[in-house]
Design a protein around this nucleic acid. Structure first.
Lengths: 223, 223
DNA sequence: TTATAAATTATTGTATACAACATGTTTGAC
DNA sequence: GTCAAACATGTTGTATACAATAATTTATAA
């Protein structure tokens, strides 16, 4: 097999994204090397890549820490994500091909199935696929890459939300609006739909944090 | 001294951005190691970081190549940059602080001086500073980082353009509009001004490429 | 002379070695 | 008992060594 450092990078990245390596945690190179059965060299190269995309931070002579940008930063990421998704939606409305149309409809159908079965895990997966189809339909490969990257980066924060309330049904209804606007070629409407669709996740994340802070405050204040 | 790999990364990145390492060129690790007077290890770590942000690509067992995404990809990057700058402008219009205001006015003044002296190099530098002030005024640090990154990534393509026609004067006039909208708190207008300001650069880049292609076509066809 | 195959060279990818520095601990003085 | 200093330990950052594979050259045959 060819170079293994892609796999290593993805494994560590996945560990971070799934919370296996918590924000602020130190990433000991020797430990990682043992854990993955390789020497420190490829581990370091993987860590360097992760530091370049902001997932970890190198403190000089003190090793790598999992980036711990507080909730404000995460909310900012949602804001940017919303804007980029809106742009992708507008671009897709203007430039989608017939193949894109069938892809969109298929992805939407699979979301519908998952929603009907109330299978949040399946919906989670199909929702991701749905959004990726929109990215591709924008016909802007750089935008598509940026969206995919941010989408991935925000995955752990989105994951928290699908189960609460009945976000899944609401999400699906929003998808329906989005797909209509895109296929109708209504770029401004598609942009607004997607903007709102993503922004609501940032808002919910903020709400979640706010309530957690409140609980924490009570706990430290109380008996 | 602390870790040197930041400097190495920046040096190689700079070499790519300034065209010292041309798109498509192979980056020989041993040569780079000799050139910078270090071993291959830190060179590799620097290359890994650059590959993570898409500036170079690793071909398995064939080393690193400077990324060569044709002109379409560059144009797409300008499109995304325009959108993000528009967002930053809108956000700055809504949320800029009094300090941001003085920073903006100062940066604008320095641009004015450079433009008055017809010093394209100085204007080039001050223009960059001006845009960074806008990013900061958006009060969204993630957006600010993304904008700064893309701005840097597109630098070599922008550099080509300031000298032609009298883009410098036009650019300065646009800056004046932008700053007015931001300080007036008119977010939609600020967004549109910045969007157009950046988009025009992408358009000019496309024009440049188109004319180059035409010349090339004539050259291969002709005697 | 050209095309193909074998051998040689060169370069990547990984492991190991080692030096510089930070952290943690023990010892000693006040 | 507390604080400070010296020592011991551990970890990072860099260099070197080596094996695997791609590129190149040379040799051979048609």
């Amino acid at each position: 097999m060819g170079s293994t450092f892609h796999k290593l990078r993805d494994d560590i990245e996945n560990g971070i994204l799934t919370g296996d390596f918590a924000p602020g945690a130190r990433l000991d190179e020797t430990q990682l090397a043992e854990r993955f059965g390789v020497s420190r060299t490829p581990i370091r190269e993987a860590l360097m890549q992760l530091s370049a995309i902001g997932l970890i931070e190198f403190r000089p002579r003190r090793g790598a820490l999992v980036a711990d940008h507080g909730p404000k930063y995460v909310f900012e990421m949602f804001e940017v994500m919303a804007e980029l998704e809106g742009m992708a939606g507008a671009s897709a409305a203007r430039r989608h091909t017939p193949e894109d149309k069938t892809q969109l409809l298929n992805a939407h159908l699979r979301c519908q199935e998952a929603a009907a079965n109330e299978d949040t895990d399946a919906y989670y997966y199909e929702n991701e696929a749905f959004h990726h189809v929109i990215y591709a339909a924008s016909q802007n490969s750089f935008l598509s890459e940026q969206c995919a990257f941010l989408h991935r980066r925000l995955r752990p924060y989105r994951r928290l939300q699908l189960r609460v309330h009945n976000r899944m049904k609401a999400s699906f209804d929003e998808h329906k609006q989005i797909i209509e606007k895109i296929l109708a070629g209504d770029a401004p409407a598609a942009r607004e739909s997607l903007l709102a669709h993503v922004k609501i996740q940032g808002d919910r994340f903020s709400d979640l944090i706010a309530s957690l802070e409140k609980i924490k405050a009570k706990a430290t204040q109380g008996p």
